[in-house]
Design a protein around this nucleic acid. Structure first.
Length: 601
DNA sequence: CCCGTTGCGG
């Protein structure tokens, strides 16, 4: 048997240590045999401590070393980078330069990675220019890290400049460009990069494909997503959890839930992230029951739900309107996880949609650090409940912080006005949004304004506003106008809106129902028939609206023409009583169809 | 001369 040379044998001995104690024994052996004094194993020893996740011992060793070369410094820096202590990485980087140790490609690479993690472009730029001074402008690793740092910080155009200047491009650079474009909300360009790398004969791997799949998901391009999966299968591409999970997510985001579910079931190994993808996929597509079932099922496999799975479950809770369930999830989060900005926002949303504005507000007040999404959610909550004045009050409070109201804030504010009938406030703040806050009104803002005006009977003003739009209005805007015309019997403008909606062909059958009702009150029977015909031909029916009420933790739902509930008779009798009392109070109910702008999106 | 250092999922 041939033995390996000594250095290699020691190296493999170090690599064979899988835990802290065996590493400590090997370390002791090194000391006893005097090998440590040779110095060349010091870096490997530190690296080994980093590998068994023992930065404290690694640091201790590091501090005890008399003379420390680049490799030792690098090993220590990498150890901190792995443990995600980016600040310590930068501190050590600066210290080593101060002590006159010459950094190399690895040093710069890891230091730049730390900057990418902390989004510290200032320090990153400093390190980059230092790397230039040391002659690393053509180094693939350094270039790749700079590019990645820009991409991670949302500076994709700066990243592209670095990318184009790189003499040699490896797989990692291309990947960073793809993920960078995705992070910047430019999936089209992400796909373009992929095509370019294929044209240049670059090989791809799983990481690249995950990026491409994500781009398909962001584009909502079901066909492209399917073809990418097909390509992977044809090429017999190795499938790991990450790749499969990204496919599950893509299928869900492109509305192909059956495929998403089928692939998920076929996965041999699933982790928390895989479950999270399916749960939020179900929830986002309105399959609340399935989402909640999955949350229970994952626990039966011994997996602990994390925040993402729970946020999906919260969305599902608000869809079924179960305050009790939502509250229990809140309790779970408080007990076993750390409530973050995203889950906090989801909780606010859940509370308000489950009818408890007070719980939403209580949570809102309890959270100390609030981002603008958090504020927007609370403002929107007041809107849902028709409390326009409170929404405005909260908006004013938000302007007192350092946060800037964005287009979503104004959308929430305008929607709250439209639900409260605050016409003047709506017009005032719509104008101020444009002139003062320099936010160009989007489709949503117009839809809420049209809804607000049309509900108040100001159909002509609403139509005028639509005419002033720079772009061609979409279905939400026309549907809001149509609803207003329908309620107010404005046939002339209503017909324009109806024609536009038909031209644009909505997916939502509810809008067709509205159009058909609109023509019905105008007694235009030919049009009614033709709209009904479209509904028939597409083979879809309007999904019936229903309401839900929770009594003693049990959900009761009410759907049109459904008399299956065991207290159906009693409920009807009670409704009659209410109706009678309302009429005594001179209230005349409006029985025509009602359509909210935010239901059409 | 070798090594290792850069990019993935909800």
């Amino acid at each position: 048997m041939r033995l390996l040379p000594w250095p290699k044998r020691l190296r493999s001995l170090l690599l064979s240590c899988k835990d802290k104690s065996s590493l400590a024994k090997t370390h002791a052996l090194f000391i006893l045999t005097g090998l440590l004094t040779q110095g060349s194993f010091n870096a490997q020893l530190i690296a080994s401590y980093a590998r068994v996740i023992d930065v404290v011992s690694a640091r201790q060793l590091f501090e005890e070393m008399p003379q420390r070369g680049v490799d030792v410094w690098n090993a220590m820096i990498i150890a901190y980078c792995r443990k995600e202590y980016p600040d310590e990485v930068i501190r050590l980087y600066r210290q080593m330069i101060l002590e006159g140790v010459k950094p190399d490609s690895s040093t710069f690479t890891v230091a730049l990675k730390a900057c990418a993690r902390t989004f510290d472009l200032k320090t990153g730029g400093e390190i980059w220019s230092k790397a230039m001074d040391y002659g690393y402008e053509c180094d693939v690793f350094v270039g790749s890290s700079v590019l990645n740092m820009f991409a991670k910080c949302g500076k994709i155009d700066e990243a592209a400049v670095v990318f184009d200047k790189m003499p040699k491009k490896d797989l990692v650079c291309w990947t960073s460009m793809i993920t960078g474009f995705i992070k910047s909300g430019r999936p089209v360009e992400a796909v373009e990069i992929y095509r370019r790398m294929q044209k240049e004969g670059m090989k791809t791997d799983g990481v690249v494909m995950v990026g491409l799949i994500q781009a398909c998901a962001d584009l909502g391009d079901a066909k492209l997503g399917l073809s990418v999966h097909g390509y992977l299968i044809r090429r017999d591409h190795p499938m790991d959890v990450v790749l499969q999970t990204s496919l599950v997510d893509m299928y869900a985001k492109t509305g192909q839930l059956e495929l998403s579910c089928r692939l998920f079931n076929k996965m041999t190994y699933k982790n928390v992230i895989s479950w999270g993808a399916l749960i939020s996929g179900y929830a986002q597509n309105g399959f609340a029951r399935n989402a909640l079932e999955m949350l229970v099922e994952m626990q039966s496999y011994g997996l602990k739900p994390d925040l993402v799975s729970l946020v999906g479950a919260l969305l599902a809770s608000s869809q079924v309107g179960s305050l009790k369930l939502g509250k229990s999830i809140h309790g779970y989060i408080v007990r076993s996880l750390i409530l973050d900005q995203v889950s906090g926002t989801a909780l606010i949303d859940m509370y308000s949609k489950c009818g408890s504005l007070s719980c939403a507000r209580a949570l809102f007040d309890r959270i100390n650090t609030k981002d603008s999404i958090f504020w927007n959610a609370m403002i929107a909550s007041y809107g849902i409940h028709g409390h326009g004045k409170e929404a405005l009050a909260l908006f004013h409070k938000m302007t007192e912080t350092s946060l800037k109201p964005d287009h979503t804030t104004f959308a929430s504010l305008l929607s709250s006005f439209s639900h409260s009938g605050l016409v003047e406030e709506g017009q005032y703040w719509f104008n101020l949004m444009v002139s003062e806050y320099k936010i160009p009104p989007g489709e949503k803002h117009y839809a809420y304004m049209v809804d607000l005006l049309a509900r108040a009977g100001l159909v002509e003003e609403a139509y005028e506003l639509i005419s002033s739009m720079g772009t061609e209005p979409g279905i939400p805007v026309w549907a809001a106008l149509l609803a207003g015309c329908h309620n107010r019997g404005k046939l002339l403008i209503g017909e324009i809106a109806a024609k536009k909606v038909l031209e644009l062909r909505p997916h939502d059958m509810g809008v067709y129902a509205l159009i058909s009702n609109f023509y019905a009150i105008a007694k235009r029977w030919n049009e009614v028939a033709s709209v009904k015909n479209i509904m028939k031909k597409t083979g879809r029916k309007k999904v019936p609206g229903y309401s839900v009420v929770e009594v003693n933790g049990k959900l009761h739902s009410f759907v049109m023409e459904d008399n299956s509930h065991h207290q159906y008779k009693e409920t009807l009798q009670f409704l009659d009583k209410l109706d009678h009392e309302m009429r005594i109070m001179q209230h005349v109910p409006e029985t025509g169809p009602v359509l909210h702008a935010n239901q059409v999106e």
